[in-house]
Nucleic acid binder design. Structure first.
Lengths: 152, 152
DNA sequence: CATAATAGTTATACTTTTGTAACCATTATA
DNA sequence: TATAATGGTTACAAAAGTATAACTATTATG
């Protein structure tokens, strides 16, 4: 009998390119935001204010890359830099109102794009997918989100 | 009340970077295969022989990119090119034994990497994640796999 | 048969991401 | 207080992915 963990690995490996296809690609046409910028805005939306290092750790991005992405998001006024009063080395990043609404629009664009595909599903299947993705999200967040991967 | 479809969109948007982190990054150190090459091998593993165009459609990759990736996989002897006897324009790609075992190794490496994180989960949660990911995979494959996104 | 369409490759330019190293400012520690 | 460690930026090189156009070979269609 196959171990749960191997089944999970196999499934994640299969799901990954499908998400890539159904998310990154469609949204590319909708916005000037790069995939990296989208990821950053996503965790900012979920976590509120984060330091540059936090962002790098959440997404396993090299710090210099985080700087580049944030520079660009700032240019477009989607996020703000704020110095941390407790530690003057750290720079905290937070979404602006413009950033929040842009992210909402991205999410809507994704919904719209998905809708054309999800019509093929029955109401039960939709419900299943909704619940399954919710569970996956929660579990993956609980085990993956916080950990520190690498020091750049 | 929130629509299932919006919940799904939100969840997929959250899951995507987590998979990116837990799959692409860890495997990068284990193998010379690029993420794109990994995706290609994955669908070849699942679907058997595919034409160049099929691969591009499954993964929403521009055809020139598929050519580059296949060139490299052939160099490393993970796949083979075969002319289609029915239509001499099409080139079919299939995994070699070496490619299959390399892919299995990648999957094992991923399992191993996941294991260190999944220890935090209870047996029930593992079971949940296993089933949820299975459902997600099946549903996403059914609605996303076949469609043609764009002609390059 | 002439023409259009398809499958794939080659070439090229560009963007995004990755990886390192060097560096500054600030904080922690011996 | 001298030194090490941390947080972040800058600069640079290289890999990976994206996008287009031009081209060959083959097949489909008028």
């Amino acid at each position: 009998m196959k171990l749960n963990i191997d089944i999970i690995a196999e499934n994640l490996l299969a799901i990954h390119p499908l998400l890539y296809k159904s998310i990154s690609k469609p949204l590319k046409n909708k916005s000037s935001i790069t995939p990296g910028g989208m990821f950053v805005m996503g965790i900012l939306k979920r976590n509120g204010m984060l330091s540059m290092s936090d962002i790098g750790n959440y997404l396993s991005m090299p710090k210099p890359h985080v700087t580049v992405i944030i520079d660009r998001l700032i240019e477009e006024e989607y996020v703000l830099r704020q110095n941390d009063p407790n530690d003057r080395r750290v720079v905290n990043i937070l979404l602006t109102d413009k950033g929040i609404s842009e992210f909402e629009e991205l999410k809507e664009a994704l919904s719209l794009n998905l809708k054309s595909k999800l019509v093929l599903l029955s109401e039960e299947e939709l419900e299943q997918l909704s619940k399954a993705s919710q569970q996956m999200k929660e579990i993956l967040i609980s085990i993956l989100s916080k950990e520190k991967n690498k020091e750049y």
